[in-house]
């Protein structure tokens, strides 16, 4: 049994791989979207909310996966970027009545721009300086969220954030908003899928595998890593713009430094460098504790311990484990 798309069959001829070419990942995404469209029927408000939260977190983790898994950079500010998007959306929609769609686009643009500004000086030096710059940025954003009461509401946060409507259809209902989230997640995932498969995306992977070799082959490493980081950050901005209307209330706590660490662990748990990894990671990080009704910080300890064990046994995370299991099964079949 061979997958329809093996690495040898991908020619480097066209610069624009049109979606006429379909592979297993895209089919999985499509099937997942269809299932999730219908899944919450009869699940109740809370169950639906958890599923939506899973998808929104997945978007942020997807972006971080691009930064960490494909470009090999440590960003410790993914939650802060998410906060930037969430606060921008919350403030503009509640105080100025700006349309959510505009806020969504602005959130992406703002986080992309901030990503460029932060990444430029750090990546000029050495990749791991980005970790420290984003660490500092994360703390700074958190301070602003907490201290600037006139803008962010301080520790009391911002409440009564409206949900957007879709061509006149109000999305107040949990199920309707969930479907809206499903569609946006699907679109963002496909865009990422397309980006990674494009020659442009393959330069990322080359970078991660061997930066110096990539540079000697003519890849402008600095530009590529910078763009990977900025796009990854923009995904966090998009996630934030969805998070605010989903929860309808935001305060600084979900955007703290610990949350950024937590998002990184989700990338690793799911499998960094696998397109579907973020969904698995966010499932383990967000949905599982809700379903098991685990207390917050105890689950964090267990999750972190599991990730450490995974890192020792299989640094490719759950996706890597599944791949291994699959290879073992098919390998047995071929051996006979």
């Amino acid at each position: 049994m061979t997958a329809p798309a093996t690495r040898e069959t991908l020619p480097q001829t066209r610069s624009l791989p049109l979606p006429g070419f379909i592979d297993g990942t895209l089919l999985t995404l499509l099937a997942g979207a269809v299932i999730l469209w219908f899944a919450p029927v009869g699940m109740g408000r809370y169950g639906t909310y958890v599923l939506s939260l899973w998808l929104v977190t997945s978007i942020a983790v997807m972006g971080l996966n691009l930064t960490l898994g494909y470009a090999g950079l440590k960003s410790l500010a993914q939650a802060a970027f998410m906060g930037l998007g969430a606060y921008l959306t919350a403030i503009l929609t509640t105080k100025y009545g700006v349309s959510w769609y505009v806020c969504f686009a602005l959130s992406g643009l703002l986080t992309f721009a901030v990503g460029l500004v932060l990444g430029f000086p750090a990546l000029r030096v050495k990749a791991h300086y980005l970790a420290f710059v984003t660490l500092a940025f994360s703390t700074l954003i958190w301070l602003i969220m907490r201290n600037e009461q006139w803008l962010t509401g301080g520790v009391f946060g911002i409440s009564n954030i409206n949900r957007p409507d879709f061509f006149g259809i109000k999305l107040f209902n949990a199920l309707e908003f969930h479907r809206f989230v499903v569609v946006i997640t699907f679109i963002l995932a496909v865009v990422l899928w397309w980006m990674i498969r494009s020659p442009w995306g393959r330069a990322f992977t080359a970078l991660r595998e061997n930066p110096i070799r990539a540079a000697s082959l003519g890849v402008d490493t600095r530009l590529y890593t910078l763009l990977a980081f900025a796009i990854g950050s923009a995904y966090a901005g998009f996630a934030g713009a969805l998070y605010a209307p989903l929860v309808e209330f935001i305060d600084p706590s979900p955007f703290s430094l610990s949350q950024s660490f937590f998002l990184l662990l989700m990338v690793v748990a799911g499998g960094s460098g696998y397109l579907l990894g973020p969904f698995i990671g966010a499932l383990l990080g967000v949905v599982l504790p809700e379903w098991l009704r685990f207390a917050g910080s105890l689950y964090l300890i267990i999750f972190a311990a599991i990730v450490m064990l995974l890192l020792i046994a299989c640094p490719q995370g759950m996706s890597g484990l599944m791949e291994r299991a699959y290879a073992k099964l098919t390998g047995k079949g071929a051996g006979r």
């Binding site: 937590f262 662990l265 690793v268 311990a305």
Partner: peptide, 12 residues
């Protein structure tokens, strides 16, 4: 992976 493991350790 080691850097990420130390983040997990910090959470623990």
């Amino acid at each position: 992976p080691l850097a990420i493991a130390t983040m997990a350790l910090s959470i623990i």
